[in-house]
Amino acid sequence: MKRAELIFQSIALITLAVAFILFWNFGKGVSFAENGLPSGPTVTDSYVVLQENLNRMIPILLGSILLSVAIAFYLEEYLARTGWKYQIIARQIIILASIPSLLYGLLGLYFFVFQSKKGSFFIHALTVVLLVMPRTIQSTQMAIRSVDISIREAAFALGAKRWRVIIDHVFPHAFSVIMSGIFTVISRALAIAALIIVVYVWTKHTLQSGDTFYIPGSAIVLLLSSLLSSVLSSFLEAKTNWD
């Protein structure tokens, strides 16, 4: 079982590495036009934008992930689950996390590409934070909850303080689950970033002479309706969770 997993993972890693090298070396020359697609954006363009954006995105990404893990630990270990603070924060996180990440992407696209002249840093960061934080907090919360209560109690019964219990026992036990959650979230964020970059490059080429957009308008309608449905679903979840 272990061996099969190892083989599978190494194959996946090698495939990824090969794809990355191919993209890095040969991606520059290929254009959509050559493949019979309309208008002019090339992969080169998306590649340049991608590089620019990754440089900015990585620090924000790392920062927001660390902050999310800290928030999740604060929520689960320091706040009482029935208290009003926990209820308010956790409810907001459920609502934010249940909105499809594509909508955050479109929102970000609208604000930092079409509204400001040269993509302001703040909006950029906000998009990444919205994309990453709620889901990371949620998955970390689940990981912390999965740690058996008896381990915590055993440590408390020896006279360990709360922060020691977290560092010595809860975190090591939850670590692998936390990491898997983080990677799922990162991959999702990257996918959305890629999508936005393609849309961005595409529109840069097609919109030369004051064409109108309907993406933002429909995005807002989508956003509102999804917000409504996620509020509803979180309400239902809260209802069923209470005994």
Binding site: S150, A154, A157, D168
Partner: peptide
Amino acid sequence: AAKIAQQIGMVFQKPIPFRKSIYENVAYS
């Protein structure tokens, strides 16, 4: 509470060793 728990120890129904070596388990407290 931590100070009290240190002076009034407890052994539980289920044995709960930490995921450490035997030595580290005992040395922990």
